Amino acid sequence: TRVETATETAWISLVTALHLVLGLSAVLGLLLLRWQFPAHYRRLRHALW
């Protein structure tokens, strides 16, 4: 049971790290898009909202 718990903890930390990385890359990508294509971003936002 001790090994299982350790594996579970490792998986949880791995998944958390993955989610953090994905979230950060998504935010960075959005910022980059907004910085590179302001007109396109505004049009996209206008279409979405």
Rank of each mutant, 00 (worst) to 15 (best):
E4L: 10
L18D: 02
L48G: 02
A47S: 08
I12F: 10
V27N: 04
R42E: 09
G29D: 05
L48K: 00
E4S: 09
T1P: 04
L20M: 13
L44F: 12
L48E: 05
R42L: 10
L31G: 05
A17M: 13
L14T: 05
S13K: 11
T5N: 01
R2H: 10
R43F: 07
T9S: 14
R42H: 10
W49L: 05
L32I: 08
H46A: 07
F37P: 02
L18R: 02
L22P: 03
L30C: 14
L18T: 06
R2I: 11
L33G: 04
A17R: 01
R42S: 14
L32V: 14
G23L: 13
Y41D: 04
G29S: 13
R45S: 07
V3H: 01
L14M: 11
L44Y: 06
T5L: 08
E4W: 14
L24I: 14
G23S: 10
L20N: 00
T16A: 12
G29C: 13
A6F: 10
F37S: 03
H40Y: 09
A6T: 14
A26R: 04
W11E: 03
T1Q: 13
S13V: 11
I12V: 11
G29N: 03
L44W: 08
L33C: 15
L14R: 01
L48F: 06
R2V: 09
E4N: 13
R45L: 06
L31Q: 06
A10I: 10
I12C: 10
V3K: 01
W35L: 15
T7F: 08
T1D: 07
A6Y: 08
I12A: 12
G23E: 05
V3G: 01
H40A: 11
L48H: 00
I12P: 01
T7C: 02
S25Y: 05
A47M: 06
L14W: 00
E4C: 10
R34A: 07
T1K: 12
L24N: 00
R45Q: 06
Q36V: 15
Y41C: 15
R43E: 06
G29E: 00
T7R: 12
A26F: 15
R2Y: 12
V27S: 08
H19E: 06
V15M: 06
H46F: 06
V21E: 02
A26I: 11
A10D: 13
A6K: 07
L20I: 12
E8R: 03
F37E: 03
P38N: 10
L31V: 12
L44A: 07
R2A: 11
T5H: 00
G29Q: 01
